[in-house]
Design a protein around this nucleic acid. Structure first.
Lengths: 123, 123
DNA sequence: TTTTTATCTCTACATTTGTAGAAACAAGTC
DNA sequence: GACTTGTTTCTACAAATGTAGAGATAAAAA
């Protein structure tokens, strides 16, 4: 099961806020804000898909993600790599570093990160 | 303009083959193959969206991509990073290296690649 | 040249997606 | 207690998507 674009967008807010009431979500949307019923519908669908759950507080609900951003995008990436990069994460990585316009500093940071990760594995 | 999932899948074949006739595309699909008219419809929509064009050879057409896989995914990535990683490619990169299960060798290759890229920039 | 095969266009249709009004309620405000 | 506000459910509906039949046609095969 996958989120649609509108749902994914809303989910983005929810990931940032960790948990939120309808009102908070609506506030987060930039103008022009969608109708409250629109957000309600999206939330409902996301609940049906088991991406979101909620706790009831009085008359309203506090929504929260059931799937972490990491897990979600990890799967997303995985699908992308499987379908379009010969299932090779390395191939994708190589594509990524060339396609994105990382600054020199960012590249250096990335290198450090990789070195760190390599070091961690040795243990 | 964006490709839908079914279209993107078909586009994947086209990118691999560089150019292809209807028949070749159909052959590429794994069982159960879609109806030829289904593929025809997808191609037509992709042509309308300017992602594909064709040369006429006799009675049939040789289709080819108008957008490179690199450009396409570059934009895709860009959108993803903008919307969910604070517009920071570095942040995404860091997520990527942890989320994907790169082998040690792949990590080393990636490191080499980055070093190469850093070296290239210095000139 | 009759038949078969491949391809293309047009049309169709069920689902999914994006968006939201109408109506029901509960909680807070006057 | 009547009114306003926030929230939810139900229902709706246009547009996008996935999938493909019917029919026209042209090339290839028999």
């Amino acid at each position: 099961m996958k989120l649609t674009e509108a749902e994914e967008n809303l989910m983005g807010y929810l990931w940032n806020m960790e948990k939120a009431f309808m009102k908070d979500l609506l506030d987060t949307f930039p103008e022009p804000k969608p109708a409250p019923t629109t957000v309600a519908t999206l939330l409902r669908r996301m609940i049906d898909k088991d991406f979101v759950a909620y706790r009831t507080y009085g008359n309203s609900r506090e929504y929260y993600p059931l799937v972490s951003k990491e897990d979600y995008f990890s799967k997303h990436l995985d699908g992308l790599i499987t379908n379009h990069f010969d299932s090779s994460a390395a191939q994708f990585a190589s594509f990524f570093t060339t396609a994105t316009d990382l600054t020199t500093t960012e590249l250096e940071d990335l290198k450090t990160l990789i070195e760190q990760q390599l070091k961690d594995r040795k243990s």
